[in-house]
């Protein structure tokens, strides 16, 4: 500890004295209002929707429309997630478990991997009782899902769990911790992807472990390797071309989870 960035000033010193002080509070109140609106209108994890529903979001945007056409040729459905900065971790966690529910053998393997993960985190220097808090909930969810024999019923339970903020956020935190652990375990490899002069540990403390921080390639690679799985991400933006760009992470993997990335946001895709 002690390697966090500490500050010298706050930004109110940049503003003049008449409008000062409560400026910060106004900005933050506005941020909270936006967050409140998002949380009231967009579920943490949505229902399955036909992929064609995307078109209605871009009715006049030719670039997007042609890319959606391409996406429709590859995928049938989309499941949206709430854009709260945790979307990659929530989507990835949900999609991974959803797939495993249909494959008992793989589920058992995953369960064992999760069971052994706590000691890895503690060995890396995470405090035992904070890790335990999240580990216990994570394992409780896996047990609850394992106890349901009917696959459809289990998927329904998964959906319910991921839409209960209490459980859903615990799942996100635990995956963030596993991702951080993976980055730190293989820091020689990952350090080349980190810009500036931050160490891998600094990066983890600032960009991986805190909630609501957006995810990048490096988070995805580490999360995949922590859960021993692969992801295909379809990138859709206003850039040139008429097709979506696809990346498999890690490179050359057989992807088990498919995600759609639009600038700053991930949703789940279904073949």
């Amino acid at each position: 500890m002690g390697d966090q960035a500490e500050g010298l000033t706050n930004n109110s010193s940049e503003t003049n004295i008449e409008s000062s002080g409560n400026q910060d509070e106004l900005i933050m109140a506005q941020q909270r209002q936006i967050e409140k609106e998002i949380s009231e209108t967009i579920p943490l994890v949505g229902e399955l929707e036909a992929i064609t529903t995307l078109s209605s979001e871009y009715s006049t945007d030719e670039v997007y429309l042609s890319k959606i056409k391409d996406l429709v040729s590859k995928y049938s459905h989309i499941r949206r997630t709430r854009p709260d900065g945790n979307c990659f971790f929530r989507a990835f966690s949900y999609a991974t478990l959803e797939r495993l529910l249909g494959d008992k053998e793989e589920f058992i393997k995953f369960y064992k991997l999760a069971e052994n993960s706590k000691s890895i985190l503690v060995e890396l220097g995470f405090q035992q009782f904070t890790v335990e808090d999240f580990y216990d909930t994570y394992m409780e969810v896996l047990k609850r899902l394992a106890d349901i024999d009917n696959v459809e019923a289990a998927k329904k339970e998964l959906h319910t769990i991921f839409n209960e903020q209490g459980y859903s956020d615990y799942m996100v935190v635990y995956l963030r911790l596993l991702t951080s652990a993976q980055l730190q375990k293989e820091q020689d490899f990952y350090s080349c992807f980190i810009e500036g002069n931050r160490t891998v540990a600094d990066f983890c403390h600032q960009e991986v472990e805190p909630m609501y921080k957006d995810s990048d390639h490096i988070h995805i690679m580490a999360a995949c390797s922590a859960l021993n799985t692969g992801v295909r991400v379809s990138y859709m933006d206003r850039g040139t071309g008429t097709t979506v760009t696809q990346h498999d992470l890690p490179e050359g993997c057989i992807p088990t989870v498919h995600l759609l990335y639009r600038p700053t946001h991930y949703d789940i895709l279904y073949v």
């Binding site: 010298l8 000033t9 509070e25 933050m28």
Partner: peptide
């Protein structure tokens, strides 16, 4: 409620 600017000091 302060928006801090953190300096890497």
């Amino acid at each position: 409620k302060t928006k801090w600017w953190y300096h890497d000091d």
